[in-house]
Simulated assay, not measured.
Amino acid sequence: MKCPRCHIGDFFEGHPYQFSTLGEVKQSCKNCGLKYSREPGFFQGSYYVSYALGVALLVTLFILKLIFLPSLAYLTTLLSMVIILVFLAPLLFALSKIIWINIFVNYDSRFKK
């Protein structure tokens, strides 16, 4: 959850589970000066990443259910998946934003102090 260019400065205003600052990205990196919001609406593309992370999580949970708990009822499986997804949603939201900006900004060791 650090700056994609220098890996030193913080990317988010707060922790992913701090609901007062949920998903708020800082304006720029204090270490290298990288402006995080590259254009208006830049992070709307992270919704696709968030969707992919959610689907990957649910598919993984379903496969684990088939391997380790094959006799578990599907309603119980569905409810447990929804509960897990609700608890991990802030983390997936934060991860999707950091993954999205890392697609467009490369690490540069020159900015490491």
Rank of each mutant, 00 (worst) to 15 (best):
P16F: 00
Q18T: 15
E24G: 07
F93M: 05
I99Q: 02
H7D: 15
L75K: 06
P16D: 01
H15C: 13
T77W: 08
I103Y: 03
Y48D: 01
Y48K: 02
L58D: 04
S28H: 13
F43T: 00
Y47N: 06
L61M: 07
A89V: 11
Y47V: 10
V25M: 05
S28M: 12
Y17M: 14
S50F: 02
R38M: 11
Y48F: 05
G9P: 11
K35A: 15
L57R: 05
H15E: 13
F62L: 12
Q27Y: 11
F111M: 05
T77P: 07
C6D: 06
L64T: 01
L79V: 12
M1Q: 11
G33Y: 14
Y74P: 09
Q27G: 15
A56D: 05
D10T: 10
I63A: 08
M81G: 13
S20H: 13
P90T: 01
F43Q: 01
S109V: 13
I8E: 15
G14F: 10
A89H: 05
Y17L: 09
N31M: 14
Q44G: 07
G14A: 15
I83E: 03
Y36P: 09
G23E: 02
F19E: 10
C3M: 10
L85G: 07
A89N: 03
F19D: 08
M81K: 05
K112L: 11
L64V: 11
G54R: 04
Y74I: 13
F43C: 01
G33H: 09
I83P: 10
G41N: 02
L34A: 12
Y74T: 12
V86C: 07
V55T: 06
N31A: 13
N102R: 03
T77K: 04
S96D: 03
L91K: 03
P40W: 02
P40H: 05
C6R: 05
V25T: 05
L66D: 14
S71A: 13
S96P: 00
I67K: 10
K2M: 15
I103K: 01
A89T: 13
Y74E: 15
